[in-house]
Design a binder for these strands. Structure first.
Lengths: 206, 206, 206, 206
DNA sequence: TGTTAACCGAGACGGTACGTCGAGTCTTATA
DNA sequence: TATAAGACTCGACGTACCGTCTCGGTTAACA
């Protein structure tokens, strides 16, 4: 078997990587994912195509890294010294969940994030390997925060002990996700607030 | 403005349409959506490329129609004279929901359906026009059945009157959808049963 | 074995072929053979690359056909109704040979012909298949005229009967060819006249 | 004008040069000239690309030097102390010419020499600068020996005084060269012997 | 006898062209 | 006039090399 020797990471050009990330995001925002091409990214970044192929094996991978990079930047800016992976814990579970979901709504409507993350999500639906990477690197960390907050609520007696937090969180998160992914309905603060109410108390009469 | 005259539907070759649908589905199942090409479909169907372009304007549209056709066939076979769009109403809401969700689990795992519907879902994420068509023609009819069943449950006093059924159904359906679309967790009868329990009763202690 | 179906010659675009020939010759003249690329030819001809690859399998083949076409055009123009493959036969062998060789000198110095024919000759040196095609299609017809003229001279008693005309003609033609191909000396009427004198009479004293 | 400082010949690595020559010749023999690349030579020689670019400015130049080196080696081995640049002078001009031409025939058929020298000759046809270098460094020395031998024959009265030896030698050498370069005919002892007879005595009856 | 400047192997870089694939358009002949 | 067939222009693919440019690591001349 002929195996290509792995490129030498130490000698990698930081400048080129940055330029590639920026070009990839910009193109996805401007012309959309399907019309974004490796050649286009290379040209816009002022980089040889081979430099892209040396470090990534597909357009989707490039965009994944570019988007991750973007998220990290944004997270750092946003929290400016604070903990980017924080989930409010005021003791009022409903209020905390509503706060976080409202923030998510804002994020989903931010055009700078929407185009690339839609593209990645779509690609992930059809390409399991990428889908799992998307999950692990982008979704899971956030979901984990829900799990922790729900555990804390269980300790405080606000959530039943026999409830699996990993499943419970989907009652809040998945409906929003589906509306975003499949246009099954409009997205608003009111909507997410309602979700929290329904999910916490159930829809059956008490 | 010079507009291309619409082709004459009356003279359309039924044989070609069938062949195109079959080829499209077969190719998506065999080689995956991205490697399915218009040329490939035409060749496999024994059809000129122009015949495809005359009636559809993109690969996604062809697949959409092909999949719809497939779904209708399957529905007819399955119900053999009965109503394909039926939702059980035994009076036991929880049981009925669990039944329907278990059937959905089976469907999602059927390889003949999985490949094309994943492909369409993915395309829809990134292409709003197609996404809305997917919703209208495939998703909405099913969701409507949930709405009706929930209304009936409200009439029976099993669901609170102030609950919006269109939102409530998402508590059952969306988590399953997200697990399927984004690999956020395994899909099983146990899981969907749990969803029904959580959603009906809420997760907060009573 | 997967064999590509041969393209249908009947449906070939004459316009494209012409444009390709013209572009190929022009580029070789303007930028030289090594800098002439298939892409360049296609772009200049306003033709898709695939159209070139469909009908030829290498740059050299394209140029060969283009040059042949050019030669035929030129021959027709030059003789305007007369026989393009004529060799003078005035009865004076030396004079006739000098006439033809002087014409060859002119041709070798014509820049429109020089660049492409040099390129083909060079390619032929290193690529036997092409070299033999070059010989058969371009060189041999001309050489055959020498053979005939020498035979006629033998009949007239001006050349020894035991001389092989196919070899004898090389005494006139090859030195000129070598000077042209390998820069072994300047090319002039005086030079070719001298060649004829030496070759006809030998260099040993009588 | 900023001129790159010439590299310091004294510090040049002899080992690298040898390795480059060997690799170049081997590759041309094995895969042919067009598929021989600078990168390939460097890799095979275990040498950095820059080391090649430092000392040569093109593939052709490398091969030229490599071939020259090879020729010198071969010449030394062949003559083992004798004069490599000797031309027999037995007093019988025809016999001497036949001897030398037969040796040339052998050389042209030696596969170790054929590939590289064909490649250089071909390159020289299309690249005048290289062609002239090829002439000066490889061809001319040999041709000069013919000139000297013919002068000696003139002194001995075996060749007419008014004959220009520089032209006369082409009667022997060029036909063979053209057959080799352009496949205009087979190469054999019989053929070269015939050439000598024709050229010395002419083809017209005495 | 260190110092230092050059060469050296290695290989990443911005590029150009390759030869292939498929998109969508157009033409031709067949039914 | 719809069709099967397939040639056409166009654009992107992923690969191979080009020639340039660092990057340590020798290595040979000089301080």
């Amino acid at each position: 078997m002929v195996k290509k020797p792995a490129p030498d990471t130490a000698r990698r050009s930081e400048k080129s990587r940055r330029a590639i990330y920026d070009a990839a995001i910009a193109l996805v925002v401007e012309v959309g994912y399907p019309k974004t091409t490796i050649e286009g990214i290379a040209a816009r970044a002022g980089v040889g195509k081979q430099t892209i192929y040396r470090w990534w094996s597909s357009k989707a991978e490039v965009l994944m890294d570019a988007f991750l990079d973007l998220s990290e930047q944004a997270a750092q800016e946003a929290t400016a010294g604070g903990d980017p992976y924080a989930f409010p814990d005021t003791g009022d579970l409903a209020a905390d969940l509503k706060t976080v979901l409202r923030a998510t709504v804002d994020e989903l409507k931010n055009p700078r994030f929407e185009a690339p993350s839609r593209a990645l999500a779509a690609e992930g639906v059809v390409n399991e390997q990428l889908g799992r990477a998307f999950l692990t690197r982008l979704l899971e960390p956030s979901l984990q925060l829900y799990v922790e907050r729900l555990r804390s609520a269980q300790d405080a007696g606000q959530v039943r002990r026999d409830v699996d937090p990993r499943i419970a969180l989907e009652l809040f998160v998945s409906p929003l996700a589906q509306r975003w992914l499949q246009y099954t309905g409009p997205i608003s603060y009111e909507y997410t607030d309602t979700l929290v109410d329904y999910a916490l108390n159930g829809i059956a009469p008490r």
